[in-house]
Amino acid sequence: MNCEECGKRPATLHLTKIVNGEKTEYHICEHCAQEKGDVISGFHNFSIHNILSGLLNFDPMAKNSFSSSLNSQTTTHKPLRCETCGLTYAQFSKSGRFGCSDCYRYFGDLLDPLFRRIHGNNNHIGKVPERTGGQLKIRKELEQLKTQLKRYVETEEFEKAAEIRDRIRALEKKIDQA
């Protein structure tokens, strides 16, 4: 189909306009569309930004009907939700607020682009709760000790093995207490 305006170029834009209940259809080419600016004024506001936020499926400023319709379209066929609090990813991308700490786990890597955009980064460095930090350290130490123990048992160095075994017990007790 050729453009209704110039009749030369192929029509690439197909628009429906409803005025007072009367439906008019336009089939025009991009060139004429630009000249006839008023017909498709909405398109001029549709920037690369909208497209990006649509892809990311997250736009806290979403007031634009384009990006929100993109959001709902891309999420309907895959309703991702946090099993703990029930917040869906679509709800999250609308409100920009998580429902509980498990949302982070359920939405997982999907959040990477979002965090990269806000913080330029995905991974936490900095303060770690002593309890978590301490336990992590102990667990790593335990793993090392257990492989050591195995080695001593294999080489029949039982005295050293017993020593290691005592240290393992002490660490396990520490974890239980925490």
């Binding site: 920009g96 982070y104 303060k127």
Partner: peptide, 29 residues
């Protein structure tokens, strides 16, 4: 103060993301 609280409450913390917050703009530290 944070350390004192940590002794008594179980904080929402994730090894990868750090301290978990309601808004994604505060997560991490």
């Amino acid at each position: 103060i944070d350390d004192i609280f940590e002794r008594y409450v179980n904080y929402a913390f994730d090894e990868k993301r750090g301290y978990l917050t309601s808004c994604p703009t505060n997560v991490g530290t």
